[in-house]
């Protein structure tokens, strides 16, 4: 994969950035997420988490699935604080 390819579109994280951290000895998707913000944007990794896990596995010469993607956290879609506060009586 070319370095310029953007893997996380929300936070503009390229494969090059991720590759550099892997070359520096970081090995896990959770670490890569926290070093680069990949998967921490508006979509919370919906688009990129499996792609990143696959590329990390590839880099390490491991089978796909050997490196699980990072944890999903709620909410499933962004929700405004105003809307959250109004849902009190539901």
């Amino acid at each position: 994969m070319e370095d310029e390819i953007i893997l996380c579109r929300c936070e503009d994280v390229t494969w090059g950035e991720i590759r550099e951290h892997l070359q520096n000895g970081w090995t896990d998707a959770e670490e890569i997420k926290r070093l680069t913000r990949a998967g921490m944007g508006r979509c919370q990794g919906m688009t990129c988490r499996n792609l990143i896990a696959k590329e990390i596995a590839g880099f390490q010469g491991k089978k796909e699935g050997r490196f699980p993607p990072f944890t999903f956290r709620p909410p499933a879609v962004p929700v405004s604080l105003g809307l959250l506060g109004e849902s009190e009586d539901d």
Partner: peptide, 11 residues
């Protein structure tokens, strides 16, 4: 002013 700001993650 935070009324329209969206939460993306909870932990």
């Amino acid at each position: 002013m935070l009324k329209g700001v969206r939460i993306v993650r909870q932990w």
